[in-house]
Computed example of a mutant assay.
Amino acid sequence: MTTPQKPVRAAGCVLWRRAASEAGLEIALVHRPKYDDWSHPKGKLKRGEDALVGAVREVAEETGMDCRPGAPLPTASYLANGRPKQVRYWAAEAVAGSFTPSDEVDRLAWLSPTDARARLTQERDRPLIDALLAALHLA
């Protein structure tokens, strides 16, 4: 009998800022050249790290933005390289900072909710935009 693998623990944010666009906000997506994908900023938690602390750290590392975390959003559970992975998400408003490309994240795009939904590579990331809009009472 095989023991179920413990899920990889990760956390991230649906990062947003106020804008003159649709719904009055823009959502940040990051491009990771290693996977050639567009996603919300997220990453693995360090051993013993609180999920919210890790989510804010990942946003800073991947986008250069300081953020103000808000409402929790749905947790994503899926297989990554054959291992179960759980990613906890929060809504987070970008409050300051600037993006610097790196080997991990080479591009940052600020998009309307409609454009962000279309650009996301993984279908599982799209409902997080609706959850953000609901949390901000914009849906």
Rank of each mutant, 00 (worst) to 15 (best):
residue 125 D to F: 13
residue 37 D to V: 14
residue 75 T to K: 11
residue 64 G to S: 08
residue 26 E to V: 01
residue 67 C to E: 03
residue 46 K to H: 13
residue 93 E to I: 01
residue 67 C to M: 02
residue 44 K to C: 00
residue 67 C to A: 15
residue 10 A to E: 04
residue 21 S to H: 12
residue 52 L to I: 01
residue 114 T to E: 15
residue 120 L to S: 01
residue 20 A to K: 10
residue 63 T to I: 02
residue 29 L to M: 08
residue 78 Y to R: 06
residue 128 L to V: 13
residue 139 A to H: 10
residue 129 I to Q: 05
residue 75 T to H: 11
residue 20 A to H: 02
residue 110 W to Q: 09
residue 4 P to C: 10
residue 55 A to H: 08
residue 18 R to D: 12
residue 32 R to G: 09
residue 8 V to E: 15
residue 48 G to H: 01
residue 89 Y to Q: 04
residue 139 A to M: 10
residue 70 G to R: 03
residue 59 V to Y: 00
residue 95 V to I: 15
residue 88 R to D: 13
residue 103 D to F: 00
residue 64 G to C: 09
residue 93 E to D: 03
residue 97 G to S: 09
residue 30 V to G: 07
residue 38 W to S: 06
residue 101 P to S: 04
residue 123 E to Q: 15
residue 64 G to Q: 06
residue 24 G to V: 04
residue 51 A to C: 07
residue 25 L to K: 00
residue 128 L to M: 12
residue 18 R to G: 06
residue 21 S to M: 07
residue 11 A to W: 09
residue 121 T to L: 10
residue 80 A to W: 15
residue 65 M to D: 03
residue 19 A to M: 00
residue 95 V to A: 02
residue 100 T to E: 12
residue 31 H to F: 14
residue 47 R to L: 07
residue 63 T to C: 10
residue 116 A to P: 00
residue 19 A to H: 12
residue 62 E to T: 12
residue 69 P to G: 09
residue 66 D to C: 10
residue 81 N to S: 14
residue 114 T to L: 11
residue 10 A to L: 02
residue 53 V to Q: 14
residue 11 A to V: 05
residue 33 P to D: 01
residue 32 R to E: 14
residue 55 A to Y: 06
residue 114 T to D: 10
residue 53 V to R: 15
residue 86 Q to W: 13
residue 121 T to V: 03
residue 11 A to I: 05
residue 53 V to L: 11
residue 77 S to N: 12
residue 138 L to G: 07
residue 63 T to N: 07
residue 84 P to I: 09
residue 132 L to F: 07
residue 83 R to H: 10
residue 17 R to H: 02
residue 85 K to I: 11
residue 107 R to G: 00
residue 59 V to Q: 02
residue 19 A to N: 04
residue 32 R to A: 14
residue 109 A to S: 13
residue 123 E to L: 09
residue 66 D to T: 14
residue 116 A to T: 04
residue 27 I to P: 11
residue 40 H to E: 00
residue 31 H to W: 08
residue 123 E to I: 04
residue 72 P to N: 12
residue 63 T to V: 05
residue 71 A to T: 12
residue 56 V to W: 01
residue 54 G to E: 14
residue 68 R to F: 02
residue 67 C to Y: 07
residue 91 A to K: 12
residue 38 W to R: 11
